[in-house]
């Protein structure tokens, strides 16, 4: 009896306690890893299709090579991570790990559904935003720690870009929060049951989407890693699993931002499919996931369409376009509040 009790206690803890389930399963780590494998594969497939090619195919051929990324992951695991003599060892090793971790942590704080959420707080939106700004610091640290000119230039670029997108990111999220008068993600979603955020403030939505693309180095803003200019930017010296972490980090961040976009602007888990709740309390949250996935697919599709901007042009987009847009979105929110009340 003892054993079965422990097991059922464990199951209860793992699967029915949101404080544990959210960070580990959905929307946390497990979902992220599965998504990484899928989305990078899809990115390569989409690019290949537009480019008249097949893309990854030979790993699990019948399924269109979907396990290619798993194979790549295994390769990264077993490849020797070369640590050059000239690098700052602590920064070099800790950087990627912390970068990935900080990219992942905000995901753990996202709610799965109204009742099922890891973090119950009036300020959950602020918490997520604050954590999101942590990751770029490590980008700069690894660029510095790599002791390589290309890495340094790459991370300086990253730094400039961060400065140009962070303010619009905050302003546009605050604009939407203003409309709802809340900084609690759950509350914001609940209030969207009638009208999605994207309709209430389309300017904020557009700004946030663009910011998401810039901050996760999607095309045309893949600037810090611009291959033909600065090799791999901050990641030049990396190999093996450390490189794998770095590569995954930007996708994780993109996932978090897409989830946030779905929650703030696309009505979150509305329209809610209540019968899903019978399977698992977090299951209705799948609606959010699907919405986020659509955003991500759009983001990765851009790779097949665009070249990349120059860093000064990206910064100009940040300050001239996005900053203006985010100010506008605040004004728009004020107007909406004033009109609708």
């Amino acid at each position: 009896m003892q054993v079965s009790e422990i097991i059922s206690w464990l199951i209860n803890l793992l699967f029915y306690k949101p404080e544990v389930f959210c960070p580990i399963f959905y929307p946390g780590l497990v979902t992220i890893l599965a998504l990484l494998i899928f989305i990078i594969w899809l990115e390569r497939k989409i690019a290949a299709k537009v480019q008249l090619r097949y893309g990854p195919l030979y790993v699990t051929r019948k399924a269109g090579g979907i396990l290619q990324l798993l194979a790549d992951l295994l390769r990264y695991m077993f490849q020797e991570p070369i640590i050059p003599k000239t690098v700052d060892k602590i920064a070099f090793i800790a950087g990627p790990v912390l970068l990935f971790a900080t990219a992942y942590v905000p995901a753990a704080l996202l709610p799965a559904t109204a009742e099922f959420t890891g973090l119950r707080s009036e300020l959950s939106l602020l918490a997520v935003l604050a954590l999101l700004t942590l990751a770029p610091i490590f980008d700069i640290i690894i660029g510095w720690g790599s002791n390589n000119k290309f890495s340094l230039i790459g991370s300086m670029r990253e730094g400039y870009i961060v400065m140009s997108y962070e303010i619009p990111m905050f302003l546009s999220t605050l604009a939407i929060a203003m409309v709802y008068g809340s900084l609690n993600i759950v509350e914001i979603v609940e209030m969207q049951s009638r009208c999605w955020g994207i309709l209430l403030n389309p300017i904020a939505a557009a700004t946030f989407l663009l910011v998401a693309l810039i901050s996760t180095a999607r095309f045309p803003f893949e600037i810090a890693e611009a291959e033909t200019e600065i090799v791999m930017g901050p990641y030049t010296e990396y190999s093996g699993i450390l490189y794998g972490l770095l590569m995954g980090a930007s996708y994780v961040k993109f996932y978090v931002l897409s989830m946030l976009f779905a929650l703030l602007f696309l009505g979150g888990w509305h329209p809610s499919i209540t019968w899903l709740e019978k399977i698992h309390p977090a299951a209705p949250g799948l609606v959010v996931f699907i919405k986020a996935l659509i955003i991500m697919v759009f983001g990765i599709f851009l790779r097949a369409v665009y070249p990349r901007f120059r860093v000064d042009q990206a910064i100009r987009v940040g300050w001239h376009l996005l900053f203006m847009l985010s100010m506008l979105s605040i004004a728009y929110s004020l107007a909406v509040i004033w009109l609708v009340g």
Binding site: V50, L52, P220, E222, T228, A304, V305, Y306, P307
Partner: peptide, 16 residues
């Protein structure tokens, strides 16, 4: 030129 600017599609198309 396409791949140097980062447009892998221009590169693949032109080579195809």
């Amino acid at each position: 030129l396409g791949i140097m600017l980062g447009s892998s599609t221009a590169f693949m198309w032109a080579f195809a």
